[in-house]
């Protein structure tokens, strides 16, 4: 583990520290954390647990590829449900929830067809593209209807961070497979490049989770 670059450690640490910090802050301020924020925190914790598990199994030389069948659907459902709760129009909310329900079995089918040893090079971009589209829908849809400054909304920062995270996630697998299939050095550099942007993505998500909350959370709007 010590030989891993700092970017990977920092990204993993942020996944664990951000929910902890947000939770402590809410306890101290005696405020309640809204439901979509709680789901995003749970998503970060799933990522954190998954990374720790992968680092541990890697260091012991144990195969951990099976774990993604558990982790990917869980984290996707958490993120898509959080995004759906932030929608200001019911059409977008229903759309994201349907996408969530369809994505899980489709992804399972594709991942199984791809094979356990395939590292999810194509099945992972599939889920990343769907979540990326959901974040863009959130940014554009909510952004067009808000009457206050967009930067004051938690969904703006979280969706921006998640979009950045999943845009790179979607591009990385096919990029490595297609262009640099044989170069281990370039693959490592690409992973480090992604890890740096993951740090930025997590900081954006943290900015969203620490935004001042509305007095009453939108639990569905614009009827």
């Amino acid at each position: 583990m010590d030989t891993l670059p700092w970017e990977l450690h920092a990204a993993t640490a942020l996944e664990g520290l951000i929910p902890l910090f947000v939770w402590l802050r809410s306890r101290l301020a005696k405020t309640e954390i809204s439901r979509p924020r709680r789901l995003v925190m749970a998503w970060l914790l799933v990522q954190f647990t998954s990374d720790l598990f992968q680092l541990y199994t890697m260091s012991r030389g144990i195969s951990n590829l099976w774990a993604r069948y558990l982790i990917s659907p869980t984290s996707d459902v958490l993120m898509l449900y959080a995004l759906s709760m932030w929608q200001t129009h019911p059409l977008r909310r229903i759309g994201i929830r349907v996408a969530m329900l369809v994505l899980v079995p489709v992804w399972f089918g594709y991942a199984i067809a791809e094979g356990v040893g395939a590292f999810g090079r194509y099945s992972d971009p599939l889920r990343s593209i769907v979540i990326l589209v959901a974040t863009l829908v959130t940014l554009v849809g909510n952004g067009l209807t808000t009457t206050t400054r967009i930067s004051r909304h938690d969904w703006f920062w979280v969706a921006a961070g998640v979009a950045l995270y999943f845009a790179l996630e979607a591009a990385l697998g096919p990029f490595l497979e297609f262009i640099f299939a044989d170069s281990r050095d370039i693959a490592l550099r690409a992973f480090l490049f992604k890890a740096r942007f993951d740090i930025l993505a997590y900081l954006l998500i943290a900015a969203g989770l620490l935004c001042p909350q509305e007095t009453a959370r939108p639990s569905g709007t614009s009827i």
């Binding site: 994201i96 489709v106 971009p125």
Partner: peptide, 9 residues
């Protein structure tokens, strides 16, 4: 597949 999921949704 991604387009199909999005379109279906």
């Amino acid at each position: 597949l991604a387009a199909a999921v999005i379109l279906f949704a």
